[in-house]
Amino acid sequence: MPLGSRFSLVLSAADEGADWAWAELYRDLAPTLLRFLATQGAAEPEDLLAECFVHIVRNLHGFEGGEAAFRAWAFTIARSRLVDSWRAGGRRPVSATGSVPETLDRLHHHEAADRDMLQRASVLEVLDVLTPDQRAVIVLRVLDQFSVEETAQIIGKSAGAVKVLQNRAVKALRRTLGSGAGHDGAL
């Protein structure tokens, strides 16, 4: 939940070292940051989340801007930590564990109690057919409601590149969801 009018007060207090302010910032940002890291295929998203906040603490003194800019900055840090983890691990994000039609079939034939977990898993598996940049654009634009410019800042590309990525992403989703023929792999 955004802090709204309280953001300036909370940010100032956090800059001065107030624990309560940092707790508020954490509760505001951590859930969406963790979701972003998980959907991007991070091997250990919780550890990366902690690294993100450490980086935020160290560099908060140099930050200037409102709440929207702060969120974009936090996601930029998360994206940087994610790329570093990929490079350190010498690999790219996790790939889909099964074909999309099988995933969708499981979604419709299991108990409701498991449905939420399956729904999330199925969503992640569908997103796995996208390239890392396409996936990032879809998640940032659809789930986190960032603008094209903010998304470009986060992933380190131009606004035009972001538009190209999102168009290609939706085409890939169309092929995957439309065909339903186990079309795995990046598009």
């Binding site: 624990d19 954490y26 951590a30 963790l34 979701r35 998203p45 919780e46 729904q119 789930l143």
Partner: peptide, 16 residues
């Protein structure tokens, strides 16, 4: 709806 914000309760204390 299918991918809501993650639950951080398990790691919140440690992270804070």
């Amino acid at each position: 709806a299918n991918c809501p914000p993650s639950n951080v309760s398990a790691v919140e204390e440690h992270h804070l």
